[in-house]
Design a protein around this nucleic acid. Structure first.
Length: 554
DNA sequence: GCCGTTTTCGGCCCGACTGTTTTCAGTCG
C-alpha cells in the first residue's frame, strides 16, 4: 500500500545518496519535494488521479514521473539504481551529528569505508590519524557520535510530539525568564508553528546580560550535554535526547530573529527571494538595504518591508501564504476569543456539585456561551464511567446567566448510556473503538454532535483513513474534533475536514489543569489548518427550534 | 531538479560555530 510518508522517505533517501555523490542542487530539490509530500493533506494517488502532482511545491516533471512510478509499482527505479551505486551505509554515516556528505564521501573514496561498522574499525585501528582534516578532536567527536548511534535505538532521534514538548518548553521559559536582565524570551521554530511534532526547540531571547542567560541555560536540571556555546548561541541536549538551541539577540533585531528562527525553511527561502528582487537582504538581524537596516524590531516590520501582511506562524509552510499576504491582510485565524463554546468537557468522576459550580464560573469568566459537559459514557479503555448523581443533577439544572449548559454522553457509537431518571442527554460525543467502525447504532440515544476521529498511533497514517472519518462526519452531520492525541484530527485532517465542509470542534481547555496544553495545541492545529475566526461558532441548542442539538458551524 | 511579470537558462539563503587551519571547509539550522 503506497503512502505519502513512504514516498517522502524515499525522496529524502535519494537526496542523501545524491549528497554523497557530490551533487550540488539536486539533493535540495528532492528534499523540498519530500517535505511537501510529507505535509500533504491528501493521498498522492488522489492528486495524481486529478493530474495535479505538479501543483505540489517542489514537484516538477522529473519528480512527477517518479511519483507515478512509485504509485504504480511501489518503487522508483532511479532510487534502486542509486542504492546499487552508493553503499547505503554512507547515508547512515551522514546522519551522525557533525558528519555530513563531504566527510562521508571522503571516507568512502579515500578510505574505502562504507558504513558505521567499518568506520568504527578504522578509528580503533588508528587509520584516521594523519589523514588531512582529521585532528584528535574531530576523531573523538566522530567516535562519540558512533557510540551514541549504537546505544540509541535505530532510526535516529525521534521527533517529540507537540504535547510532550509543551511542558519542556514551559519549564525552560520559566527558568530563563527568572534570570535578571532577561527581556523578551520566546520559543520559535516548529514549536511556534505548532507542528504536530518537533525535532528540537529553538529559544530566542533578548538580554543585556547574555552570559547570565547562557549560564542559566547550561545549568538547567535536565541538560545532559552542552553541544556548543558561542557568543550568541548555545546548543544543549536534554536527558530525553531533545536538542534545544538558545540564541540571544539585541532588541532591535528581535522581530527579525523571531521571524527567521520560526521558519519554515521553505517559507524563509521564499521570503529572501522576494527580498533580493526588491534589492533587500534578509537575515536574522533584520532587513537591509545595503548597510541600512530598514526593519527588524518586530515581525510585522519585517513582513511589511517586503510588501507583505504579517503571516501567522502556523501558516508559514510556503503553501501559498506568501502570495496571499502580498495581496493584503490575511483573514484572521481563529483565536482564543473566538472559542465561544466547548462541546467536550470532562471532569474527574469524583467531581462534586461545588466543582461543577467552579467550572461554570470559569466558563463565564472566559466568556463562553455554551458548555457541554460529559456526564457519563465509555472511556478510552472501553469501561463505563459516570459522574456522581448529585453532580449530574447540578449540571442538568444549572441555568447560569449568559451560559447554556449541555448534558453530553460519550459513547463508542454502539452502546447506550444510562443516566439518572429525569435526566436526558442533549447529544453524544462518539469515541470509536475500532477502526474503521461500523455505523453508529440507533440504540444509542440522542443525535451525535461531535465525533472523535481515531487516527491511530502511526505517524504515516494514510490520508485515506482520515478521509473515511471526514466522509462519515459529513454523512452524520456532526463535527470532528481537532487536538493532540491519537483520537483527534491533526492539522492535515482538519484541513481535509474544512475542505469537505465538515465543521471542526476545538476544545478550549476550560476546566483543565493550568498546565494542560490541550487547549493551546488544539487551537494551534486548527490555525495550521487555516481555520478562520468566523468559522468556529458553537450555537447552543434552542428549544424554540425544537432541537436540543448544539451546532458547530462554519 | 525546480523555478520564473525582470529569466525557459542560470540561478539556487545566509550566518554561527567548530576544528584544523595560516585563511578555510564542513556542518548545522
Amino acid at each position: 500500500m503506497p503512502s505519502n510518508a513512504e514516498a517522502a522517505e524515499i525522496f529524502s533517501l535519494i537526496a542523501d545518496l545524491l549528497d554523497v555523490l557530490g551533487e550540488k542542487f539536486k539533493p535540495d530539490a528532492y528534499r523540498r519535494a519530500a517535505r511537501s509530500i510529507e505535509t500533504l493533506s491528501e493521498d498522492l494517488g488522489r492528486v495524481a488521479a486529478r493530474n495535479e502532482l505538479r501543483t505540489i511545491p517542489g514537484v516538477g516533471a522529473a519528480i512527477e514521473e517518479k511519483i507515478r512510478e512509485y504509485l504504480a509499482t511501489g518503487t522508483i527505479p532511479y532510487y534502486e539504481r542509486l542504492r546499487r551505486e552508493v553503499p547505503p551505509g554512507l547515508a547512515e554515516l551522514m546522519r551522525l551529528p557533525g558528519l555530513g556528505p563531504k566527510t562521508a564521501r571522503r571516507f568512502w573514496v579515500e578510505l574505502g569505508i562504507e558504513g558505521p561498522g567499518e568506520l568504527s574499525d578504522a578509528i580503533s585501528q588508528g587509520r584516521l590519524l594523519g589523514v588531512k582534516g582529521f585532528g584528535p578532536k574531530k576523531i573523538e567527536q566522530i567516535a562519540s557520535a558512533l557510540r551514541a548511534a549504537t546505544a540509541a535505538p535505530p532510526g535516529g532521534a525521534a521527533r517529540l510530539p507537540l504535547e510532550a514538548a509543551f511542558p519542556v518548553a514551559e519549564r525552560i521559559l520559566r527558568a530563563l525568564r527568572a534570570v535578571p536582565g532577561s527581556e523578551s524570551i520566546e520559543v520559535a521554530g516548529s514549536f511556534r508553528r505548532r507542528r504536530e511534532s518537533v525535532g528540537d526547540l529553538d529559544i530566542l531571547a533578548t538580554s543585556n546580560t547574555p552570559d547570565a542567560i547562557f549560564d542559566a541555560f547550561s545549568a538547567l536540571p535536565d541538560v545532559r550535554e552542552v553541544r556548543l556555546r558561542g557568543g550568541t548561541k548555545e546548543t544543549v541536549v536534554l536527558a530525553n535526547g531533545l536538542q534545544v538551541d538558545l540564541r540571544v539577540v539585541e532588541p532591535d533585531a528581535f522581530g527579525a530573529a523571531l521571524q527567521y528562527f520560526t521558519g519554515s525553511k521553505d517559507h524563509n527561502v521564499h521570503l529572501r527571494t522576494i527580498a533580493r528582487d526588491r534589492g533587500l537582504k534578509v537575515n536574522e538581524y533584520g532587513v537591509f538595504r545595503g548597510e541600512e537596516r530598514v526593519a527588524g524590531r518586530t515581525e510585522e516590520e519585517v513582513y511589511a518591508s517586503l510588501g507583505l501582511a504579517w503571516i501567522p506562524p502556523e501558516l508559514r509552510e510556503n503553501r501559498g501564504e506568501i502570495e496571499a499576504a502580498a495581496k493584503g491582510p490575511l483573514p484572521p485565524l481563529v483565536g482564543p476569543a473566538d472559542l465561544t463554546g466547548d462541546l467536550h468537557v470532562h471532569l474527574p468522576s469524583e467531581a462534586s456539585a461545588e466543582d461543577i459550580d467552579r467550572l461554570l464560573q470559569e466558563a463565564r469568566a472566559r466568556h463562553l456561551d455554551y458548555l457541554g459537559i460529559v456526564v457519563a459514557g465509555f472511556g478510552a479503555d472501553g469501561r463505563p464511567f459516570a459522574l456522581a448523581p448529585a453532580a449530574i443533577a447540578r449540571i442538568a439544572s444549572a441555568r447560569p446567566k449568559g451560559l447554556t449548559v449541555g448534558v453530553a454522553i460519550e459513547t463508542d457509537g454502539e452502546r447506550s448510556v444510562d443516566l439518572p431518571s429525569g435526566i436526558r442527554a442533549d447529544y453524544r460525543v462518539i469515541r470509536p473503538t475500532a477502526a474503521p467502525p461500523g455505523p453508529v447504532a440507533a440504540s444509542a440515544r440522542g443525535p451525535p454532535a461531535l465525533l472523535l476521529a481515531h487516527l491511530g498511533p502511526s505517524p504515516g497514517e494514510p490520508a485515506e483513513r482520515v478521509r473515511h472519518w471526514v466522509d462519515r462526519a459529513r454523512a452524520e452531520g456532526c463535527a470532528l474534533e481537532v487536538g493532540p492525541g491519537p483520537e483527534r484530527l491533526d492539522s492535515n485532517g482538519a484541513r481535509l475536514a474544512r475542505e469537505a465542509g465538515v465543521p471542526i470542534g476545538i476544545p478550549t481547555g476550560v476546566g483543565a489543569a493550568a498546565d494542560d496544553p490541550t487547549g493551546p495545541i488544539a487551537l494551534g492545529l486548527a490555525r495550521r489548518a487555516g481555520t478562520a475566526a468566523d468559522e468556529v461558532r458553537v450555537r447552543p441548542p434552542t428549544s424554540s427550534a425544537g432541537s436540543r442539538r448544539p451546532i458547530v458551524s462554519r
